[in-house]
Design a protein around this nucleic acid. Structure first.
Lengths: 116, 116
DNA sequence: ACTTGACTTGGAGTGCGCTCGAAGGGGGAC
DNA sequence: GTCCCCCTTCGAGCGCACTCCAAGTCAAGT
């Protein structure tokens, strides 16, 4: 699969895919005869997971660490799990915070309604 | 109240408070005899609300627009309400998205647990 | 043979939201 | 008086996560 196809399917830009590879987020994408990247299904799955980490607010540096552990093999599973658990806690906190802020928005909107 | 006190109470830095004033997010903070800023309770309330808009992901430019409408008076209430409603929708979507992503994290963590 | 277009690399540029530095101005404590 | 500290403005700098550009390669189409 070409970089354009991978971009469309992952929702990332081709620029971003190259950038992710450069910083080590996605490792050693296969090249075809002419040196062009050739993405496989497994790359797409990994990109989807990376995207979930990103959209939930994990910093790139932390994602790089996770990717590095993943490359190191199964013996890093516990550390990776710990990272995900810590991240999950952050996401839960974030959701709780957003839900609180939502109440304030609701309250404000009601006030505006009352004014009209 | 001095800028330092306002910073402590709002959770923003003094730098950020000056920055917010410069870009028009907070308008015409009173000055004392020697030109120092003198924040009042109402400023703090406004800063708290601004902070909620920020932490829920409203871009600064949009917050400036909201602040501008607020300065223009009561006849902008409908437009401000519309902005808040649009923002509320975005926040709701964001929460829903985070909740979906949380499921993926849970799933992954379970897999790691199974591996150990 | 030549054009077209998508790809490659390395490095520079961008936008956002701050964050900091420089240079200078009070005003209270000693 | 002078030391010290916090304040002022203006403008530059920073960190993050991309985003884009320049220069070159390669393969397919006409």
């Amino acid at each position: 699969m070409t970089i354009q196809e991978a971009a469309e399917r992952s929702g990332l830009s081709a620029h971003t895919l190259r950038y992710y590879e450069r910083i080590g987020l996605i490792h050693s994408v296969r090249r075809d005869g002419s040196g062009h990247r050739d993405y496989v299904e497994r790359d797409l799955e990994w990109l989807d997971f990376l995207t979930k980490l990103r959209t939930t607010g994990m910093p790139i540096a932390e994602m790089c660490r996770y990717a590095e552990l993943r490359r190191m093999g199964d013996h890093t599973a516990a550390e990776r799990r710990a990272m995900l658990e810590a991240h999950r806690d952050r996401v839960r906190c974030r959701i709780a915070e957003l839900q609180q802020d939502l109440k304030v928005l609701d309250y404000k909107i009601d006030i505006y309604r009352g004014m009209e």
